[in-house]
Design a protein around this nucleic acid. Structure first.
Lengths: 240, 240
DNA sequence: CATGGTTTTTGACCTATATCAAACGCATTT
DNA sequence: AAATGCGTTTGATATAGGTCAAAAACCATG
């Protein structure tokens, strides 16, 4: 909602960023990492509700999330919007804009967040020199394609309970990879946003949470989720 | 279904391929195109029903479709399968495999087809030398991401009629870009495959075709489609 | 700590699409 | 020409999830 200009420049290098095992620098040696540092000097902070970019804006850079949480949403001309993803620290966002040199969706901070700007032409130039970086960039793009196929599968052939279970397990796994508990976490998004992402109405999301709670799979208290029975939740996904 | 080994090597270079404006060579000069030719010498033919690759197979190459028609499908462990795309000449397939060095879906010829194999490590090496090729490869991957977001939107928030209209308009536009009529074309896939792609059951696809025909939007005769009222069909997509 | 606005939950009812089933059409084989 | 088989169409019925509505919980603000 807001559009404040309280974006600060901070000096934190890839080489001592605690996300380097998840983010772009994967598999780079010290010397190479320094060169990546030189590209990614610009950090910016965003308050909850602020836009990182908007659909239609020119493409200049990819963004690595350092802290916080974002959502991306595509808008239909008729006003309908679809959440296409929720991004957390270490993930790269803006890849969709490469194809047309313009962003094709909005990226909005779901909580106060900090990003790291990666000018794309300089990233391309560096990746021509560093095969390891080049390969990793390709892997990141490919991973996004695989992720999208997973969501297509979810939207195309799963029932509401399976969708929500898959969503929660995915969040759990990503929190876990970042050193947080896989069993208890805070949802940063509304029921409406979860529903948009999963192709469900917010009431259905809410009801499905309640069902899971009734069956002892989860403890849900609005935004706080605790997974009580991970195995049974897993068996939900793809069990019919 | 079959797994014949009637794959022939043919000598057709990118430089004289009539798909060069759609495929990888976009924006390469003569000298550069020759170098790409050197990579893509292996062409193979596939009969209807043959697999180009299968989920789980090791990743070595991308494939450019020269003639024919393919589908890609992802399989769920429980046997459910979801068609993730239909590919036609000039399109590049196999991008999902980069992330894990293994294919994550099956690619199956829907009619007798011919592909052009592009060994990925050599493509990466060449794209380190040719910035134009590098950028184009990135655009191709990004375009795939944007395409997938479109399908997510379709699956997540459109009704059956909108989905089918969007699907037909997309085919129409792609046939048109290849010099074929945008108004009349042959469907290469079954109702079941269309349904899987659109998140609908085959009966719903069939009924929706019938509705469109009743309303004078289409003439459908099994696999032959003629679009009678393109504008009204367009107004269907995203009209509520 | 009262207020107003947003988000979530729950209930009652409705509809788009799924499911089940049968007939039909077209192509291939015998 | 009959038989076989797959894909398609159409009808009758069922249901998962949508819609509408109201209450409850939560959050930010003065």
């Amino acid at each position: 909602m807001q559009n404040a200009v309280n974006n600060v420049s901070l000096r934190i290098a890839c080489s001592n960023c605690n996300l380097r095992e998840l983010c772009l620098p994967v598999s780079l040696c010290g010397k190479e990492m320094e060169r990546l540092d030189a590209l990614t000097s610009l950090k910016r902070t965003f308050q909850r509700g602020e836009y990182l970019y908007r659909s239609g804006e020119g493409f200049r850079a990819l963004y690595a999330i350092r802290t916080g949480f974002f959502k991306t949403q595509a808008l239909h001309e008729d006003g309908r919007e679809q959440v296409t993803g929720f991004q957390m620290p270490g993930e790269i966002i803006g890849l969709d804009a490469i194809s047309s040199d313009a962003h094709t969706c909005d990226a909005i901070a779901l909580e106060d967040s900090e990003i790291c700007e990666i000018p794309f032409d300089r990233l391309e130039a560096l990746s021509r020199e560093l095969p390891g970086l080049q390969r990793h960039l390709h892997k990141i793009m490919s991973r996004e394609i695989v992720r999208d196929h997973g969501i297509m599968m979810l939207l195309g052939s799963m029932r509401a309970e399976e969708r929500l279970a898959a969503f929660l397990l995915n969040l759990s796994q990503r929190f876990s990879a970042r050193g947080y508990s896989p069993n208890a976490f805070l949802l940063r998004m509304t029921r409406q946003e979860i529903g948009s992402y999963l192709g469900l109405k917010l009431e259905t999301v809410s009801r499905t949470f309640s069902h899971f709670q009734e069956h002892g799979l989860l403890n849900v208290k609005v935004r706080e989720v605790e997974i009580m029975d991970m195995l049974r939740l897993r068996s939900f996904v793809g069990s019919i």
